[in-house]
């Protein structure tokens, strides 16, 4: 019975990783860059949620929507000012810039919101439901449902809508997409907006499950979600989902059955093994770098 509970908690934690990983993978797919600042967007989203409720008494659902909008705008601004000028630059320059943006966000948060951790109030309350003798928290259920909803929405968006298809076209070949009359810059901005809005949602869910919020809150989940994205196959949307959920399950099982201290080490060890066996990740395609 506890096994099932661990599994459900693993899926839920993994769901949060998956939502974050979607942002990494979508941005990588279209901009061919690792947006290391993505983890810190989670933190910003969580702070917006926190202050919306604590300072303005805004209901949680509206707070999350607000955080999603703020983060979407932040993602677009970061892309426009930090990454867009480097579109033709070496990927190392872009990577270093992304790390710089990450530190910028963390330090701006330190200045604005101070280093002392805030206690985040769960967006869905702290109750739990009992199903077959198992006590499952509202946060766990909400996270799993949110994850499913996001997956469905993204699948419909990229598979059925004109903009979603344009996004896939840009991810595959920007010049050709441009020659079809697709505005590549707008499409890239939109991708950053969606990824960052998802990060805000993940931030709210994460802090509802683990209620301490500080300027570095986003780093570790960010790195793990990045791991999840690589694990699933960077650039692949289903891969990010699968990678995230698997990573969450591995982490919870490692904590429960092996060692709490070692759980992170185990998570990364699994990543290394997977990449040794399958360098492109579970669902990734072998990339043919175009010149």
């Amino acid at each position: 019975m506890t096994f099932i509970l661990y599994l459900i908690n693993g899926v839920s934690l993994g769901g949060i990783y998956a939502i974050i990983a979607l942002g990494y993978t979508m941005v990588y797919g279209i901009a061919k860059m690792l947006n290391f600042a993505h983890g810190d967007i989670i933190m910003v989203g969580a702070y917006v949620c926190f202050f919306a409720a604590a300072s303005f008494g805004i209901p949680p659902v509206i707070g999350v929507l607000l955080a999603a909008c703020v983060c979407a705008a932040l993602g677009v601004i970061i892309e426009a000012f930090a990454y867009k000028p480097l579109r033709q630059a070496a990927s190392l320059a872009v990577l270093i810039t992304a790390i710089g943006v990450s530190y910028l966000l963390q330090n701006a948060a330190l200045l604005l919101w101070k280093s002392n951790p805030r206690v985040f109030t769960s967006i869905v309350g702290t109750g739990a439901v009992r199903i077959w003798g198992l006590s499952i928290t509202y946060v766990t259920i909400t996270t799993i449902l949110a994850c499913i909803a996001i997956m469905i929405c993204l699948t419909v968006f990229t598979g059925k809508t004109k903009m979603g298809k344009a996004m896939r076209a840009c991810a595959e070949d920007k010049n050709a997409a441009s020659l079809m009359g697709i505005n590549v810059n707008v499409t890239i901005s939109l991708t950053f907006a969606i990824g960052s809005a998802l990060a805000a949602v993940a931030g709210a869910l994460l802090c509802s499950a683990y209620p301490t919020l500080s300027p570095t809150t986003g780093s570790m989940p960010g790195i793990k979600a990045f791991t999840a994205a690589v694990f699933g196959g960077i650039g692949s949307v289903p891969g990010a989902m699968l990678g995230g959920v698997l990573l969450g399950i591995i982490e919870i099982f490692a904590k429960a059955y092996i060692s709490t201290q070692l759980s992170d080490a185990i998570v990364f060890a699994v990543l290394i093994v997977v990449l040794l066996v399958k360098p492109a990740g579970l669902l990734g395609r072998q990339v043919h770098e175009k010149v």
Binding site: K165, R168, A169, E172, A176, A177, L179, M180
Partner: peptide, 22 residues
């Protein structure tokens, strides 16, 4: 364009839709 540059991972129909993007 030269070298065709069709979107290999998209279906024929989706490629055509992209042609009518504007």
């Amino acid at each position: 364009p030269e070298g065709r540059a069709v979107f290999l991972q998209m279906t024929v129909e989706e490629n055509l839709e992209m042609g009518a993007f504007t």
